[in-house]
Design a protein around this nucleic acid. Structure first.
Lengths: 204, 204, 204, 204
DNA sequence: GATGAATGAGTGTTCATTCAT
DNA sequence: AATGAATGAACACTCATTCAT
């Protein structure tokens, strides 16, 4: 049934299956090649090594996700005054979360690999990197808000934890919820829930 | 400097180091033995196999943690009426969280291994098991509360997610905060934050 | 002197030697590879595992032998009436025995391995299988003869033993007689001898 | 249940089980000791090594068997004239065969080990040794008979084969017939059968 | 584009045996 | 009479990777 796919594609398909089943470290290139019905040599024509093969499955979606986040953050910081004034709603949060979720579910397998099967590869700490990037943004934002509202400065650690929780939500979706639609629904509850938390904290 | 330790102890010490450095799968028994200055045969005198060696590092603390949680949960369910009435505070949550944190920090390495280095061993899904166990308890509790307060029934998924978030907090501590004292401090903020979330949800 | 042989062939040659010297279980793949001047990995390129390597030495001859026997038996049962009438001679027995011996001596080493060195492999009980197959045939034949001659029914056990003795003859040749010519000569005496035995038994 | 047995005895019992299950080479001393509930050191107090342990299970019965055969053979050669004259029967053959069978079945496990599980030990070729010893005797006897009857000299090979067949009968009993009584019954048929064979050959 | 062959280091595990105590 | 500890060599097997063709 895979006869029409080109070799590279066949390798990627089988690699994905193998990585999902066994994880990066336990995956066997031998096995991938056998299932793709090519020799190991062929694999090395298309990919530099095991890591490169894995990257080919996850790198583009990852870049895309990072792009989405970065664009939103840039915009948020640019329009920070408006952002603060607009007290009324979660609309802006919904919007970004929906787009992030969409990106995640459009590349479900890739993010599943990144989140649960990348141990041993250079993507091992990818969530940490995402968290770090988000954290910086939220630090800036929180400081700006505190400045304008003359409220208490949020603890570094709490910024970190709230960020982490946000990321954990996405991870949780990727690992527990197959349907994007359901994920969006959950997201709405959770944003409410988390917003309540933020506000509680901002009260000091 | 390790010359005074008995062989079994030396093996455990070096195993811990190796597992922490490389994870369960990548850890090399040969390496452990070399560092412990014994032959591989010696290792197999004290331990049945790789998994048994890993277990010897984590099983006791894990059992202890499960015991603590179970005892608290049993008590909570037994005194559920008092628990609900007592609206005023987080005291009861602090208490258990402090004991859990204490257990975690008393066995820091073991839980670090469990959380971050157990992939490939039979402890691979240990957090899932903990979450599952807690989830059941919270489901029961939430139902009872809803019954008495005549409030809305909490969504299964939200129960799951809130549980997950709680567990993620502990994981977060084990992976990011070396000091138990600091962890306790963070915990207090976070419980406040999470309680606000719960209440937001219970409002419906 | 082996430099011209291809690797696979060299491995088979050295495997044969090793298996003959030490038997299946004691044979060392390491040793085979060392003698064949390749690494162990090379062996696993050509053969799946130890058992596959052993099989590659014996399976084809074994199949051939089973084919020969089966063909003769089928023919014998097809022409059973003529077979019984023709009281006068051993000719038909000679014929098959000669072909079997020829097959055995054409693949001397393979059958030597099967008979004396297969303990621990899946060929361990190969003689039993051959005996079983022959036994069924002889049971059928003896019943038919008894029917036509109105003679006594041969004891199951005696059928089994006579079959066993026949097989033991071939085993005996493989383990004690290097020359096919001599084996054929012995065979003639032995068939006479065994025929006398059968007849004695059929007398009751 | 084995608590009353002394250690040495317990080791032997468990060694027998292990050797029967796995054969000499595959048997694990570790395993034997574990089942006997002693440490490996204990085994080496009672037995020199693996081979000595195996010997302790089979040597005495083997010596006994050899003694029986030797005594009969000595007697037969001493009374050779009477033996030849007495044409009428199998009585003398029955007598020895029965005693041999009795010895075999009195030490069933030991002979089972010798026949089917001794590969790799110094008893590996024990049947060959028995055959060789018997062969010499039959050579002498056949020559004497030929001399007195002025009949043809039996082929060396046929002597060998007939001996082999005789031994194979005993092996066959040990491997296929649990009951001594049945074995004796089979033996009677087979002696008749084999005698017919001998006579056919002596006719030339 | 891809094959077939091969490397060399590595894996966890098992073994019979030894010996001080 | 027996233990507990340890050795050291061996085992079958797997791995990612290389490269001439």
């Amino acid at each position: 049934m895979k006869t029409d796919l080109e070799t590279r594609e066949r390798l990627l398909v089988n690699a994905k299956t193998e990585f999902i089943e066994k994880g990066y470290l336990q995956a066997s290139l031998r096995n991938i090649c056998k299932n793709a019905q090519v020799t190991t040599g062929a694999l090395y024509f298309f990919f530099e090594n095991k890591e490169d093969l894995f990257s080919s499955l996850v790198e583009v979606p990852l870049k895309e996700l990072q792009g989405i986040i970065r664009r939103y953050f840039d915009r948020e910081r640019a329009q920070i005054d408006g952002y603060i004034r607009e007290k009324n709603g979660y609309a802006v949060h919904y919007e970004i979360a929906k787009e992030v979720l969409h990106c995640l579910y459009q590349n479900y397998d890739a993010f599943f690999l990144l989140v649960t099967r990348s141990q041993g590869s250079r993507f091992e700490h990818f969530t940490d990197e995402i968290v770090e990037m988000m954290e910086k943004h939220y630090r800036t934002m929180a400081d700006e808000i505190a400045l304008q509202r003359e409220s208490v400065r949020l603890d570094d650690y709490m910024i970190h934890w709230l960020t982490h929780t946000k990321v954990d939500f996405y991870i949780h979706m990727i690992t527990h919820e197959k349907s994007e639609q359901m994920a969006v629904k959950h997201m709405e509850s959770i944003i409410k829930c988390m917003a309540a938390g933020w506000n509680e904290l901002l009260k000091g």
